[in-house]
Simulated assay, not measured.
Amino acid sequence: MDVAVGTFNLNNLFSRFNFRAEISAVHPVDDEGRLTSSYVFDDPKSVRIRRYKGKLVKGIDPEEQKVLARRISAMDLDILAVQEVEDIDKIEGNDPRLIDIAVLSKFPVGAVTSWQHAVHPDVPGERVFSRDLLEVHILDPRDPDKHLLTVFNNHLKSQFVDRDTDPEEGKRRADERRTRQAETIARIIGERTRPDGRYIVLGDMNDTPEAPTLSKLAEPAHQLSLTEALAHPEETRAPKPDDPPPPASGSWTHRFKENGQPAKYELFDQIWLSKSLTTRHKSSHIDRRTRHGGDGSDHDPAWVVLDL
């Protein structure tokens, strides 16, 4: 049985907290999201307003949501790990923007574990994950009493540095946090799986597979023996021309361009296979965007096909 498993950062999908009415529909707001009028809500359960750093969080453009939905539908995957998806009625992660991670599955789902409270021994009083580490057990549709594989969905610390922070110090702190996150992932997986277990570690890692911050995942001698599966993916279409051009290998999912600088193409969205799954790996794929800014997201989704 072929099983397609993928990952997709949905770029702040459903970034709104007010289910009865959008703030802009109640009263106009300026470009900074500031609301000058006062409203009284007699029933606090009917309206929820979300702010981040003092500003109202706006909903994503409905047309962009439709683009994302079409891309997900076109991939037709069996299991999809997503990041930056918002649903306040489910498990909340640690991100102050309330962007969460989730797993969509056509197959039956067994145990689900959130590791949002995990800590690193270097900082035992602080949650290590910026969002969460989500462990999901997928059951075999041919025999729902049988375990098929385990998915570990991730969204590690971003490379963004606040403009009020020293760039070098900000990068150092972000890299340190990401390193601790990768080390914690390796520890948890080592404790939760068997050497011959079927599991996938995937998601938006916010760094490249060979980066020092992810070394605990990439160590060939590590007990996990993980293999990153997107080294030479098949692309759904040719990438947009650029100068310099994107990597010929096609091994990238994220494009970032600073003003006056050439664009960087990096494989931030990764799929790491356990040792027992590497021999069952048939193919790897990336759905390539049609515009530099991305189609609904600044990340391109990636997936693998496994023979299970």
Rank of each mutant, 00 (worst) to 15 (best):
D2S: 14
D2G: 08
G6F: 02
T7R: 02
N9W: 10
N11W: 15
N12L: 13
N12K: 11
F14I: 08
S15M: 13
F17P: 07
F17E: 09
F17D: 14
N18R: 08
F19V: 15
R20G: 08
I23V: 04
V26R: 09
E32G: 09
E32V: 06
E32M: 08
E32L: 09
R34M: 14
L35S: 08
D42Y: 12
R50N: 12
R50A: 14
R51N: 06
L56D: 01
V57H: 04
V57P: 02
V57Y: 02
G59E: 12
I60E: 11
E64V: 13
E64L: 14
K66C: 14
A69N: 09
R70P: 08
R71C: 10
A74T: 11
M75K: 05
D76V: 05
D76G: 09
L77V: 01
D78W: 01
I79W: 00
Q83D: 05
E84P: 02
E84W: 03
V85C: 12
D87N: 10
I91L: 07
E92A: 13
I101K: 01
A102K: 03
A102S: 10
S105I: 03
P108D: 01
P108M: 01
V109E: 03
S114E: 01
W115H: 12
V119P: 14
H120N: 11
H120C: 07
D122F: 13
P124M: 06
E126I: 11
E126V: 12
S130N: 12
S130V: 15
R131G: 02
E135K: 00
H137Q: 14
L139P: 00
P144F: 05
P144R: 02
D145N: 15
H147T: 08
L148D: 06
L149T: 03
L149R: 06
T150H: 06
N153W: 05
L156H: 02
S158T: 05
F160P: 11
T165F: 13
D166M: 08
E169Y: 11
G170S: 09
R178H: 05
A182C: 07
T184L: 13
T184M: 15
I188N: 05
I188P: 02
I189M: 10
I189C: 11
E191A: 14
R192T: 05
R194M: 08
D196K: 11
D196V: 06
V201E: 00
M205F: 07
P212W: 07
T213C: 06
L214P: 01
A218V: 02
E219N: 13
L224Y: 01
L226Y: 00
L226H: 02
T227F: 11
T227N: 07
L230D: 04
L230M: 05
A231K: 13
P233R: 06
E234G: 13
E235V: 10
K240L: 15
K240F: 12
K240W: 10
P241C: 01
D242H: 04
D243S: 12
P244N: 02
P244E: 01
P246D: 02
A248M: 07
G250M: 05
R255N: 08
R255F: 10
P262I: 09
P262A: 04
A263L: 11
F268V: 05
F268R: 03
D269A: 06
L273H: 12
S276W: 09
K282H: 15
K282G: 14
S284I: 10
H285M: 10
R289F: 03
R289D: 02
H292W: 07
G293A: 08
G293R: 08
D295N: 07
D298R: 12
D298V: 10
